[in-house]
Nucleic acid binder design. Structure first.
Length: 848
RNA sequence: GCCCGGAUGGUGGAAUUGGUAGACACACGGGACUUAAAAUCCCGAGGACCCGGAAGGGUCCGUGCCGGUUCGAGUCCGGCUCCGGGCACCA
């Protein structure tokens, strides 16, 4: 190798070596401590982007570091390969989703390999392969048998223009994400997973996840949304039965002056039958029933309702109160019926004002300042119960308990707990997903596909039209099937599964990626699970991470998984952003398109208008602020790309892209490279034997710096993930070595310490910039691959300070600095500190 | 509206437990090398002010704003402002 740093040749060389030697292949080894580090696997969109580079660079540092620390380290990679873009490509360009996906996987795999990521590629998997998705189907059937998968009719988001169901996350402000049509509601038969069975455990076990960011824990807690309250029956007046309501504020029940129902409530129409209100109610229901919840208020939060003509009795006040339908009541939460307490609930307050319903105060502030007249908004805080019969005078907190207990005693209702979490609808009317392995027979009903007939493969005779309905039903042979139970004519389910199913257990599959007889090998999973460190974007804080936790628990209850939680530690990395440029006339512009200069101001290439440097935003094609990792690798090499993304910001923070910063990273590697080749000739006769005796004070200090750096870099990587400060410390050490080499590069003693320092830098850099570190290690005359070198340990003896700098503060302000030998007494320091003239000048009186 | 984060030089960011604020890097300025440029190397730098011929030395201010605790606060407490994110009629 020559004296110029040539990233391309070095990187190709080491990637070849790692491949040939299967350097990162692992298997179970009971003798070694295991470590499982996993980055969220990518969707094969075509090319990797900077978010991937950042995510996988972070994971690779952890993997390589843990390996050097002696852990048996599992670091796999695969493809979340089902999903909509492949189907859209098929519709728009006539490529089969399978071909499109495989091509993308192939290309992205070469890109990842060029990053030098230390994956065990033998465990590679793609969720669109029948060998993978057959186990989605198998798990579905196990869930079905346990009642965890079930079918029910439910309202779904429906785009009338695309004629398809939309997932909640595809509805933006009540409109379709693709065509911008107003989303409606449609009732469809859908398959669900009973995730709500695990609501309480999913909530409780968040406390076990000490290694997760608080932010994510909070988001999951809110998503599960546990509410404690009571269900109480309000008997109907003039007919049998009652309305069961759910409330978290039973203490306000004496203030309930009406009841509100969702338009979907089963009794909604029935109650008005035969009353003068019937027509109005029918109109109201028709107006709202197909409108998605997000679109039900004409304006933000506008309350609307209609009287049903019917009454029910508040069991506590024994008064008859009217029943209304209201546009803001949700059928899916609670019971679809709400006791309305206008004085103490803002929605009910607005509703009562609008329809002139009474607003009695039943919770008073402690200074009794609420009156019917001065109430301008609902009083929703705690207080003292008033006008509440025998409960008057109780604090509202105590009242909640007492009222609920009283209702239970009288058999009017019971204490109840509700969650916002809904069961997980997994049916998708799509082609490119896992076929749901169910057969419908007129005689036998809903029958799962027998396990020995799995996988139910995707048919390849489906036209891709983009029209509504399930594409699988267009296949000539797919749907028609003999009933597995009776042999009679039957039809297959033609919906496919939500792709989140695929990603809910792939981390288990990685422990035995190619086992053909089970979703994963139980013993291997027992060895590797849980994932010790999971790394990915915060956008998955709820859905993917919650579904994976649910799957892990459900598979545990099927005696497959042996852990309660899949991911012991979670790191959510920030996004990669860059400045944008925008012309008022011609929208977003690439920086390279701009004309003019930084000093004179940039102008638009089309209209010549001045262009302002815009906000720093997440990299996106639309905003033209992307950097293609491939260009970066071609220009500087993978090591530079890795070094910059790791150095520019701590992993959990957003990273602002800087082209100059990349240059800086490259310069550092070049400088190190040159340094090694320049000084190596001096090291042929010396060896770093760690013997410090006879070294000058300067060299002893240099050795101290070396060992301090070893300690700091280890501490920074381990658990803290402060890669930016770890790299900064390495740079500091390098600066110190450079300075030493310049002032005293000739003596044998100095050469030995500088050699020790240089080797230390190369080893410490191995997790961050593996190619150049490996190459330099070899150039330094080492036979064994740097990947196999253990992480260096620091010497306590070398760390020991001989002299200490003592900062003397007077009233918190630095007034003097004294240097003392490390082994002196307290009095010695005090005496010297008080002898310092500067300190003295600030000490008019006594010292503390 | 509710719940989480965050705010430190020209910029990205350091400061791990309340103890020298601004490590490291980028950008910038100056110098060396060069016919020249690039590359490389060296030096400088928070702000205001003071002493000195100079090298240098010193004082005060300074971590979004106001207040508090403490010998001492970027760090802890109370009250705001702004920015980012999540949830959003959940009874």
């Amino acid at each position: 190798m020559e004296e110029r740093y040539q990233a391309k040749a070095i990187e190709e060389k080491w990637q070849r070596i790692w491949e040939a030697e299967q350097a990162f292949k692992v298997s179970e080894d009971a003798a070694k401590a295991k470590y499982y580090v996993l980055e969220m696997f990518p969707y094969p969109s075509g090319r990797i982007h900077m978010g991937h580079v950042r995510n996988y660079s972070i994971g690779d540092v952890v993997a390589r570091y843990k390996r050097m620390r002696g852990f048996n380290t599992l670091h796999p990679m695969g493809w979340d390969a089902f999903g909509l873009p492949a189907e859209n490509a098929a519709i728009e360009r006539g490529v089969h989703p399978e071909a499109w996906t495989q091509e993308n996987i192939l290309y992205m795999k070469t890109q990842l390999k060029r990053m030098g990521l230390s994956y065990d590629w033998e465990r590679e998997l793609a969720t669109c392969e029948p060998e993978y998705y057959r186990w989605n189907q198998w798990i579905f059937i196990q869930f079905f048998k346990k009642g965890l998968a079930y079918k029910k009719s439910s309202f779904v988001n429906w785009c009338p223009s695309c004629e398809t169901v939309l997932a909640n996350e595809q509805v933006i402000d009540g409109r379709c994400w693709r065509c911008d049509s107003v989303v409606t509601q449609k009732e469809l038969e859908q398959w669900f997973f009973r995730i709500t069975d695990y609501a309480e455990e999913l909530l409780q076990d968040l406390d076990k996840l000490a290694g997760w960011p608080d932010k994510v824990l909070t988001m999951q807690r809110n998503w599960i949304g546990k509410s404690i309250g009571a269900e109480i029956d309000f008997p109907l007046v003039g007919r049998d039965g009652g309305l069961r309501i759910f409330t978290t504020r039973p203490d306000t029940i004496f203030g309930a002056t009406f009841v509100s129902l969702a338009v979907e409530h089963p009794l909604a129409l029935d109650l008005s039958a035969g009353t003068p209100q019937e027509a109005a109610v029918r109109t109201f229901i028709d107006r709202f029933k197909n409108v998605s919840q997000a679109n039900r208020g004409a304006e933000e939060g506008e309350k609307e309702g209609v009287f049903t003509g019917a009454y029910c009795r508040n069991p506590f006040t024994e008064k008859n109160i009217p029943i209304y339908l209201a546009n803001f009541v949700l059928m899916e939460y609670g019971t679809g019926a709400v006791m309305a307490v206008p004085a103490h609930d803002q929605r009910d307050f607005e509703f009562a004002k609008k329809y002139q319903l009474p607003i009695p105060i039943v919770i008073q502030t402690h200074d009794h300042k609420l009156t019917a007249d001065n109430l301008t908004e609902a009083y929703v805080d705690d207080g003292v119960m008033v006008d509440s019969g025998i409960f008057s005078g109780l604090a509202s907190a105590a009242g909640k308990e007492k009222i609920a207990a009283y209702a239970e005693e009288k058999n009017w209702g019971k204490k109840a707990i509700r969650y916002r979490l809904r069961d997980w609808g997994v049916s998708r009317q799509r082609y490119w997903g896992t076929p749901i392995p169910i057969i419908y027979c007129d005689r036998c009903g809903t029958v799962p596909v027998p396990e020995d007939q799995l996988p139910v493969k995707l048919p390849d005779d489906v036209p891709f039209t983009g029209k509504g309905g399930s594409p699988l039903s267009e296949s000539k042979f797919f749907s028609q099937v003999a009933c597995p139970t009776c042999g009679g004519p039957a039809r297959r389910e033609t919906d496919t599964m939500d792709t989140f199913v695929d990603s809910s257990w792939y981390f288990l599959r990685f422990t035995s990626a190619h086992v053909a007889t089970a979703p994963f090998d139980i013993e291997k999973a027992r060895y590797w699970m849980a994932v010790d460190q999971y790394i990915g974007g915060v956008e998955h804080a709820v859905l993917h991470l919650l579904y994976s936790r649910f799957f892990t628990k459900a598979l545990r209850d099927l005696d497959l998984a042996k852990v309660d939680e899949p991911f012991a530690n979670l790191l959510t990395q920030g996004m990669v952003s860059k400045e944008t440029y925008r012309c008022s006339e011609h929208s977003w512009l690439f920086p390279s398109e701009l004309v003019g200069s930084e000093k004179e101001g940039w102008r638009c290439p089309q209209c010549g208008r001045p262009v302002q440097k815009g906000r720093v935003e997440k990299m996106s094609k639309r905003k033209k602020n992307i950097v293609d990792p491939e260009d970066l690798i071609n220009l500087y090499g993978a090591d530079t790309a890795r070094l910059f993304t790791l150095f520019a910001a701590p992993p959990e923070k957003d990273l602002e892209w800087s082209d100059q910063g990349v240059e800086g990273a490259y310069r550092f590697l070049s400088r190190l490279w040159r340094f090694v080749f320049q000084h190596r000739p001096l090291w042929t006769n010396v060896s770093a034997n760690g013997d410090a005796s006879g070294l000058s004070a300067e060299l002893r200090e240099l050795r101290r710096t070396i060992h301090r750096t070893i300690k700091k870099v280890g501490d920074d990587i381990d658990g803290r993930f402060h890669f930016n400060t770890a790299i900064a410390a390495i740079m500091e050490l390098f600066n110190a070595l450079s300075a030493a080499a310049q002032s005293d590069g000739q003596s044998n003693a100095a050469a030995a310490v500088i050699q020790e320092g240089t080797e230390t830098i190369v080893v410490l850099l191995a997790p961050f910039v593996p190619h150049v570190a490996n190459e330099l290690w070899e150039e330094l005359g080492h036979e064994e691959r740097l990947d196999q070198v253990p992480w260096p340990s620091y010497s306590e003896e070398a760390l020991e300070e001989e002299k200490l700098l003592i900062v003397v503060q007077v009233n918190g302000k630095v007034r003097g600095k004294i240097t003392v030998p490390a082994d002196v007494t307290q009095e010695y320091i005090e005496t010297n500190a008080l002898a310092d003239p500067k300190v003295l000048s600030f000490l008019d009186g006594k010292n503390v």
